[in-house]
Design a protein around this nucleic acid. Structure first.
Lengths: 351, 351
DNA sequence: GTCAGCGCTCCACTCGGTCGAGTGCCAGAA
DNA sequence: TTCTGGCACTCGACCGAGTGGAGCGCTGAC
C-alpha cells in the first residue's frame, strides 16, 4: 500500500484531495465532471475519469454502484489525512470558546468534565478525555480511620487538593490510636514525595529493613503499601454522545446502539485511547483501524496532553469518518495543549 | 373526561382493552374484524365498528388515516392502565433474576447501580433509580483533615460503611490538633444519631448554648454544622438508555436525541421522579403527562421504595408508551420492594 | 498523454393500476 | 332499540413500466 502512495503523481493527488474534500462537504458521491471543474486543474472530465479508474484500482476510492460518483475508501481517507490534508488554523472564536472554558481553579475531575464537554460542543461530535495518570503528583497526606472490625478507611490527599478514599479489609484489627501513629510515621517519611516514589519506597522498605523496625512500623509500612498500592482506577470521561445521532451515515440503529453502549461500558474507549498515549501528536483512527468492528463509519481523532513535558493522558473525539478533519484536528490539538497547561498551571497547584 | 369513563358499558370496555392489548402486542392499528374476532365477544365486525366510532368520539382511540385500524390515544392508555389492566404476577424467572442481582453486602452506590441495571435488563427499557434520602441513617463518625490555609476536609462515615468527603473553606485557620479535638467532641456527642437529628441538634446548640461553651466547642459546632449542613446531592442513576434505540416508534432521531440528552442532564428525570415520591404505589406517566414535550411516545413507570416504612426514594423505567404494562408494572413493583429490603437488611447495616 | 463522443448502466422518480384492509352508512332482522 | 349483513368508498402498500439524468468505460483522433 505504501509504495502506491508514492506512485501517485501530483495531479492524482490533487484530484483525490479535491474528491475527498468535496465528499466530506456534501456527503454525495462525486462524479468526474464535478471533480474536473472543482479541482482547479484544466483537464477534461474524461481525463479525470481515467485517473479515477486508477485510484479505484489502488483501492483509494470506490463507487457504491455502476455509474454513481466515487467515494473515498478507508485507505483513501488514510492517505488523505496522512499526506494530503492541510489543516486550518483553528478559528479565533473556537480558540476563545475553548480557552474561556477552562477554569484554572477547578478540580481535576471538573477539568476533565469541562474539557470533554468543550470538545463535543465545538466539534459537534462525541468528546472524551482519559484521566491523567498520577505518576508524579505529590502525596500531601495520608490518614487512616477505623470503620469497624478489620475494616479501615485510608484517605490520601494528593497535590493538596485531590482526595481519594480507599477501604482496606485487614486480617488484624487496629485501634484508632495505633492507626494514628502509623499515619504519623508514614506522613513524616513520605509526605511531599510523588505517589510513584512513595510506592517504590514502601516496597523497598518492606524488603530491606524489616529487622530494624518494630512491629508497629512494619505494620505501618504494610498498611501504607496497601493504601497506595492500587493504581488509580482507569477511567475516561465522555460527553456529547448524542451528537452522533445527528449523522445520517450512522443512522443504522443497531450500529448506533453498539456505539452508545461502548460509551457506557467505557472499556473499549479506554483501549483506543491507550493506544494513543505513546504518540506525541495528533493521531487518527479511521473506521475499523482501531480493531473494533462497529467502528465502521466512525473515526477517532486523539491527542495526548502533557504536564511539565510528560504525557499524562489522552483526549479526543469520535465522529463519522466523513468529518472535517481540517477543522477537527487543530481543535483537538489546541484543546490538548490548553488542558495540559491548565493542569500544570501554578495557580492550580498552589491551592 | 372522567364521566366518559363511567359511561362506558362492559362491552365497550372489553373492546377497548382487547384493542389496546392487541396494539401493544403487534404495534399495528387494529381493525374491526380482527377486534371482533379476538375480543371473545360474539358480535359482528359492524357492531364493533359502531362501538369504535363511539370510542373515537370520546377521544380514547383514533385512526392514523381513513381506513386504517384504530390505535389508542394517550387518554385511551390512561383509562387502560387505570381500570382495564390486569397485571400479571411477575414470572418466577424474573423474580429470581432480580432477587439474585441484589448483593446484601454491596454499598449503597453499588446497589443503585445494580438496581437500575436490573430494571433495564429485565424490562429491556431504560431503568433509573433515585438515590435514597439519607434522612435517618446514622452518623458513625466525623473527622477533619487540614488541607491547607483555611481549607479543611470533613469526612463523614455513615452507617459504618458509606464515606462522604466535603471540603470546607473557612475564614479562620485551624491546626490539626484543634481539628482533632473538635472531632472528638462532636463524635462523643453525635455518633450514632441520625444525620437529621445531628443537624437539628447542632442548630439548636448553636442558638441556645453559646454562652456556656468555650470558643473551641463553639467552633466545633459551627464546623460540624457546615460539614453536615448540605443536603446530599440530588442524584439519579440511569442505565440501559440504549435499549430505547430499538423501538421503532421512537425512531425519530431528533426526538431520540432529546431523550438521551435528558438522561445525560438528569435534571428532568429527577423532576419526574420527584413527582412520584409522595405516592405509595406504582405510578404511571403516559406521553406528555409528565409535562415534557419530548416525552411523546414515551411512558414512565415508577414505584417508591421504602426502608422501615419510610419512603426514601423512587425507581422506575422509561420506555415506549406502547409497552407491556402488565409485565412492566409488577417488575417495577417487586424491584422497589426488594431494593427497600436490601437497603434495610440487617446484614447490610451490621458491617 | 489528452480529449470529445458514444453507448451503456444504474438510480431515483413518477405514474397508473391493483389489491386488501378497513371504514361509514343504511336497510332490514330480532 | 339494537344488532347485523351488505355495499360503496377510501386509503395505503405494492408492483411494474417508463423516463430522465448522472456518470462510467471505452475508443479513436490529435
Amino acid at each position: 500500500m505504501d509504495h502506491a502512495t508514492i506512485n501517485l503523481d501530483a495531479r492524482a493527488r490533487t484530484l483525490l484531495r479535491t474528491l475527498i474534500e468535496s465528499y466530506i462537504r456534501d456527503g454525495q458521491p462525486v462524479g468526474s465532471r464535478t471533480l474536473a471543474r472543482s479541482s482547479g486543474l484544466s483537464v477534461s472530465a474524461a481525463t479525470v475519469r481515467n485517473v479515477m479508474a486508477d485510484l479505484e484500482d489502488i483501492g483509494l476510492i470506490h463507487s457504491p454502484h455502476t455509474s454513481a460518483g466515487r467515494i473515498p475508501t478507508p485507505a483513501g481517507y488514510r492517505l488523505f489525512v496522512d499526506s494530503l490534508l492541510e489543516v486550518r488554523n483553528p478559528s479565533p472564536e473556537e480558540v476563545r470558546a475553548i480557552q474561556s472554558g477552562f477554569d484554572p481553579n477547578a478540580s481535576t475531575q471538573d477539568l476533565m468534565d469541562t474539557t470533554s464537554n468543550l470538545l463535543s460542543r465545538v466539534t459537534r461530535m462525541a468528546g472524551m478525555v482519559r484521566l491523567p495518570r498520577h505518576r508524579n503528583v505529590a502525596l500531601s497526606q495520608i490518614e487512616f480511620l477505623r470503620l469497624g472490625e478489620g475494616r479501615i478507611l485510608a484517605i490520601l490527599v494528593i497535590d493538596g487538593k485531590e482526595v481519594q478514599n480507599r477501604v482496606l479489609e485487614l486480617e488484624r484489627d487496629f485501634g484508632q490510636d495505633e492507626l494514628q501513629r502509623m499515619a504519623n510515621y508514614l506522613n513524616a517519611h513520605l509526605a511531599g514525595k510523588s505517589l510513584h516514589a512513595v510506592r517504590a519506597e514502601l516496597l523497598r522498605e518492606m524488603r530491606d529493613v524489616r529487622d530494624d523496625l518494630d512491629a508497629m512500623m512494619l505494620a505501618a509500612i504494610d498498611l501504607g503499601e496497601k493504601a497506595v498500592g492500587d493504581e488509580d482506577p482507569d477511567d475516561v470521561v465522555v460527553a456529547g454522545q448524542t451528537h452522533l445521532l445527528g449523522y445520517e451515515e450512522l443512522a443504522d440503529m443497531e450500529r448506533l446502539r453498539q456505539l452508545l453502549e461502548a460509551f457506557n461500558e467505557k472499556q473499549e474507549i479506554l483501549g483506543i485511547l491507550d493506544q494513543c498515549i505513546r504518540s506525541d501528536r495528533v493521531q487518527i483512527f479511521i473506521g475499523r483501524e482501531s480493531g473494533l468492528d462497529w467502528f465502521e463509519n466512525c473515526s477517532v481523532v486523539t491527542a495526548p496532553y502533557s504536564v511539565d513535558g510528560e504525557v499524562v493522558g489522552v483526549l479526543g473525539v469520535i465522529g463519522p469518518t466523513r468529518m472535517s478533519y481540517d477543522r477537527v484536528i487543530p481543535i483537538v490539538d489546541v484543546t490538548a495543549r490548553l488542558l495540559g497547561s491548565a493542569l500544570g498551571d501554578p495557580t492550580n497547584e498552589s491551592r
